[in-house]
Amino acid sequence: MKRLIYILLLFPLCVNAQSWEDANTAYSEGNYAEAVVMYENIAQTGNNAEVQYNLGNAYFRTGEIARAILAYERCLRLNPRHKDAKFNLTFAESQIIDNKADTQTFFLLKWARGFRNMLPENVWLVLAVTLFLLFIVSLFLFAFAGPLTLRKTAFAVSIVTLILSACSVWCGLSLHHRDSVRDEAIVMQGIVNVKASPDKSGTDLFVLHEGTKVRISDTVGEWCQIHAGDNIGWIRLKAIERI
């Protein structure tokens, strides 16, 4: 009975491994459309950076640049240090029409955001807790150590670790917020007119092309307000897909 349960538990994993191999074979033989379907099926069963990366490649080969960018972005969400995904994302972004318009313009915040994106959320938590424990240890050293130099060093270390721990907490929390709000999205439609109001008859403000990254700040019915660089406007939710 127990064995049966184990087999049942392992079953989805085996299916995944099998279809993963099949999808890779399809890709290497040039059947990119087939590979896309297979990778999508695998991605349905669980989030994995490598699956998203390969899916992005398959989409890129079939010419769906916007879908490829979306998959690379998702891959980088799961593993921010995936070098190949970073490279391919940059390459895919060079193929789209719109220039990369950063939603954040203040350089310090931009820098901070880049720093934040270097590690995934759970690693930030581990780092923060570790630094916090270090802080406590150094605080104890400061309080109870005998020699004066050791106590001085311990004090400095405690301050530094506390600050770093706080930073890590901020990074992790910020990432958690981003992933729970999912306010970043990729334009999926070839050309979209961005309106001044959430209404079909609204004035066209500007035009976005597929593959462009936007930030969602508000939603009204099937419309959402997006930021692309300094431009703000309303767009239909189905024209974009959240990362």
Partner: peptide, 14 residues
């Protein structure tokens, strides 16, 4: 220039 190749090893478990 082209995109890099897919990840071909076994599917890394989480």
């Amino acid at each position: 220039s082209d995109i890099r190749y897919i990840h071909t090893g076994s599917l890394p478990t989480e």
